[in-house]
Design a binder for these strands. Sequence first.
DNA 1: AGCACGCCGACT
DNA 2: GTCGGCGTGCTC
Length: 802
Amino acid sequence: MASPPEPLQVNAQRAALLSPPFLAYHYRIPDTPPAAGFLPGMRVAVPLGNTVRAAVLLPQDAGWDTAAGTALTPPEGIALKPVAWPLERVPLFSAAHLDVLRQLALRQGMLLGQVLASVLPAGLKVADIRYRLQGIPKLRSLRIRDVAAADAALRQTLSRAWEAGAMQPEAAFRETQFCWLSQDPPWPVRPAAVNQLKILEYLWEHGPVPVPVLLAALGDGVRESLRRLVDVGLVRQGLVPPGQQEEEMDPACVLAGAPPPPTLNEEQAAALASLSEALHRWQGETRLLYGVTGSGKTTVYLALARECLRAGRSVVLLAPEIALACNLRSAAAQAFPEAELIFHHGSQTPARREAQFRKLAGRGEGDAPVIVVGARSALFLPLHDLGLIVLDEEHDASFKQEERLPYQAKELGYVMARRFGALLLLGSATPDIKSFHAAQTGALPMAGLTRRHGGAQLPAIEFVDIKGLSSFDQLLAPQTMAMVEETVRRGEQAIILLNRRGYAPAMYCQDCGHVLRCPQCQIGLTYHKGRERMLCHYCGEGVPWPCLCPQCGGISFLPLGEGTQRMEEVLTRHLGRDTTVLRLDRDAARRPGRLEEILSAFARKEAQVLVGTQMLSKGHDFPDVTQVVVADADMGLNLPDFRAAERTFQLLMQVSGRAGRGDKPGRVAIQTRDASHYCFEHLKTHDYQGFFEEELARRKKWRYPPFVKLGLVRVSFPAEWEGHAAALAALAGRSREAGREHGVQVMGPAPAPLPMLQGRKRFHLLFKGEDWSRLRAVFAALKPLQDDTLRLTLDLDPLDMM
DNA sequence: AGCACGCCGACT
DNA sequence: GTCGGCGTGCTC
């Protein structure tokens, strides 16, 4: 009688590769080191072809196949290779983390290996390491390749060393040199030094970059020019970009705001009590903290964090951008001087991210909980004792990452909270319509803070009609200007919001009527003074100014519209030399450390007026600011985006919240051409609830979120592609067909609001349906039409409709 | 990502 | 004839 078939390779396990092809291949678990040393979530070195690569061991569960890219059992007829050696002693990823990342991979239609690779710092993705050895004669260190090729005897020896802790993986710190600008433009370089100028422009656009990245972008030929720039001091070079060192960050952070008072008022205490109850259930719940600007949400976050730490569980505090995370960090550092605080954001050096990752993964059961403060990517740090996740300014679009590994931090936080039994707390003065709707229907329990801390009043809001104003001559109406003057005269400060950087957003040829446009994007070029360039705000490219009209060769251009640079100039001229005007926008804050410099100079009252884009609308606390001016409130309102009103309302509420935070009352002047817009009506009375109700009714009427799931398919192809008409027709046909089949409403393809970017024409298709899976199904029907020429991407719940 | 294999152009 | 360019395809 034939014996039952032998079970396939009992000692086989899948490992997800951290480099292409990112599949989870099957490997035999070797006898040395003992099998107990190989645990799921651990990084291991595996042979692949003739090389050795890093991979992560997966649990031996079914149900992982889709994300793994391979079946649970290995294909027949393949001789399994053994795992070469573990890359660490304790798994980097816990089972819970691996599971969360698997869900993320499934949702995004990516391989688990791809997700793991995008989450890990560069140094943890390479298998190219050495092991340092102790106590073995004539063998101080061994390359992984040699470990993989070792015979049984050597493996025995190594195994004993590994078990005894006498074999240590040596971190492959290949320190990369960074370079960055030391000066704002204009740069003292002769115009003929094209390579030097290329480098300066590149660094201005990209900020601090690793030297190899710069050389790859501009060609190896610029090496000499870079050396020259470093020699003359225009460019700095070093291991750590500025703003990364702990000590450099601290002063600006501490200056950015007073620490929140340690005692809670009645409202805060009530909010804390209900949140605390949810926290201590450890059931993975989500809560909304809705509190008006200045009501002390941070105080509540910190009090809740204290309870979580006391219970022995770690805390993650997230802010939408680094500058705000920085404020949270100094508040947390003051509140918990004894706790270990990790500050994390995406633009740290790989070495530092690696150290943080390792440190957190290496924490054991009995270790004290930690507090992590950072931007969205901090969610990926391996905290296995997670108890609380706080997302401050939860309505902010920055919590969604669009490129590489697309994810929405709010959603990921929700999944993680459930998996870890942690509390997810979303905080905002102007919650996302979707969140507030969930709160109103009871799906998302809410705690509220309605009063400003310390009895401060919400500022008085008035509207200034600028219908008749010619935009170039009068950026501010006379009465607005008078308010600013008065504020300065009283020794107080003013903030002017103008959501458009540069000097003039268009140059109009007076001879032929042509407007200078970017040849790659067809976007109007913006004049940037000082740099003397016309710049494209979408691709960063530009042409030197002055130039001839490309259409008629004329030389007389009329600047049109307004930008922050010109606002700064106008105010400086008008207010006279006793008043200092500062500007804060992406251009002013390009150079590392400049953002902090500008904010702290304003906080020290070295300037009376701060002009800027929405960068200055959030979080910052300047007690002497009593006047806020919004130069053009209509700007964002007429964008082709169903969220235009919500966004404008949120921005104006936030920036209004900057006025009157101290003991002096604040005033807000909003310049508009249409003060009757419903967005402004509710703003006047600081009535979020009223705005919400009106906006929600509109969303319902026009079938937009939260009443429907929205998907945006971005279609793009080279501008000169001849087959585009047929392709668009095919997209229209197929999507309608699939839409009918799955009950999804399909609109388009229509030219995108920005119809061309970087040499590619852009079209949009809009899907509306009951659930995400239906939208995905319709998109799946379009996927076969995609190739190198025609690019298609599906953005579920798009935040950027342009 | 690496590394093989393979199919065409300029050389000791 | 061979050395070597990098296009295509595979890796448990």
